[in-house]
């Protein structure tokens, strides 16, 4: 009986490793962006794997294991973060309350697009990462999941544990905050000249959808 149990353990473990270890690089990359610390990122990934193994029986075979692992990692990060880091208080501030100094206008984006500017060729990956790390964590989290990991809005909602509407809102704002940091960087580095053009705040998506619904 005990021999059978040991063989069963080994099978379970090897199935777990075969399914999950290929996602370790992605989990580590996301963990590093969330924690902004290599040591904390390692701990987070290690915790994620341990928890995933403990709850492997609850994983529905054939479903998206990467999304399942990211959900565990995100929850682990939120719990740890919530308890240990004060910055969470800032991250939980409603998006409307975050002082953004306005988003980047379309003209400003076009200034970056100018072939003479050649902005993205001059921009190093490290500088993009530095700008991303300045985005508040709740927004950064969805940008990482969407733009680096390529998850759909629905998958992100499932991973983060919030409605799809919240994902859209956080992603929109996260991307615009990041855009603002990159634009400021381009000005600081003299890549483009300052522009004072500003545009209004974006509208609420739900308002549009409700209006269309009411109109039948």
């Amino acid at each position: 009986m005990f021999g059978f149990r040991r063989r069963d353990d080994a099978t379970q473990r090897s199935e777990f490793e075969a399914l999950t270890l290929e996602h370790m690089d992605a989990l580590y990359g996301a963990a590093l962006r969330l924690t902004r610390s290599p040591k904390d990122a390692e701990d987070l990934v290690q915790d994620t794997y341990l928890k995933a193994f403990r709850f492997f029986e609850s994983f529905e075979k054939g479903t998206n294991i990467k999304a399942w692992l990211f959900k565990i990692q995100t929850n682990t990060f939120i719990n740890r973060y919530r308890r240990k880091v004060k910055e969470r208080e800032v991250a939980e501030t409603p998006a409307e309350d975050i002082v953004l100094d306005r988003f980047v206008s379309a003209d400003q984006v076009r200034a970056l697009q100018d072939p003479e500017t050649d902005f993205f060729s001059k921009l190093l990956s490290d500088e993009v990462v530095e700008a991303l790390d300045q985005v508040p964590v709740d927004f950064r989290m969805v940008v990482v999941l969407a733009d680096i990991q390529g998850f759909s809005y629905k998958e992100i909602a499932e991973i983060v544990g919030c409605p799809v509407g919240t994902v859209m809102s956080r992603l929109f704002r996260g991307r615009r905050i990041l855009q603002k940091h990159l634009y400021d960087y381009a000005i600081r580095e003299g890549i483009i000249s300052p522009d004072t053009t500003q545009e209004g705040e974006p509208v609420d998506l739900d308002a549009f959808r409700n209006r269309k619904k009411a109109a039948g």
Binding site: E42, Y49, L50, D147
Partner: peptide, 30 residues
């Protein structure tokens, strides 16, 4: 593209995988 480039360049420490598999091997299967 830039974000993905930066992500692709990242590699976890070489001993992380070893630590994870060692940790799992100490756990009992469900």
């Amino acid at each position: 593209q830039k974000l993905q480039e930066s992500s692709d360049r990242l590699e976890p420490p070489s001993n992380l995988k070893v630590r994870i598999t060692a940790q799992i091997s100490e756990e009992r299967s469900p």
